[in-house]
Amino acid sequence: MKFSPLVSELIDSLKGLPGVGPKSAQRMAFQLLERNRQKGVRLGESLIKAMEKVGHCRCCRTYTEDDLCHLCASPKRVGSGLLCVVETPADVIAIEQTGQFTGLYFVLMGHLSPLDGIGPLEIGLDVLKKNLQDNQVKEVILATNPTMEGDATAHYIAKMCKQQDIDASRIAHGVPVGGELEFVDGTTLTHAFSGRKII
């Protein structure tokens, strides 16, 4: 059986979302059509609005509909002289929730991964270089993921900072709080030992 053209189109579009297969797409479409027309209309409207208006912040490259995101626009944050480099906007939220960091961010939107065709320019390191020159950054905190690619990205940026005489630091990695040493893999434990702190 075939659905009418508009219904099939809706199902097809929903399939484009991550983790949504044909069955789930069908279920979502029917749910919206049958029970939740109003929510469906709202979803459609906000989708169109977001797709048309949201771009990248001029300074930190995170998603925003303004020229500058609210974090980059804050004079207090600019004055702190700290810049934290992260891979995704989700990382910014995670760090913001800790309330520990009061500086600026720079979102790479990925990491260096030559095999995926991602080099220094694709993750906006030219923008970052300009930021470092223009803003009065005293320290760059490299909070890329602790994967080999994340490390490579961190090293690349650290070298860029060194050329401009800016301190670069890497976040610590080790045993998670509440975890048990027995279940931590060897590589993580090695990092935890080499990065130990005197108390």
Binding site: L112, P114, I118, G119, L121, L125, A152
Partner: peptide, 11 residues
């Protein structure tokens, strides 16, 4: 071209 060659070039 090989993308990793770009890593050797400083920005």
């Amino acid at each position: 071209p090989l993308k990793s060659r770009e890593l050797f070039v400083n920005l």
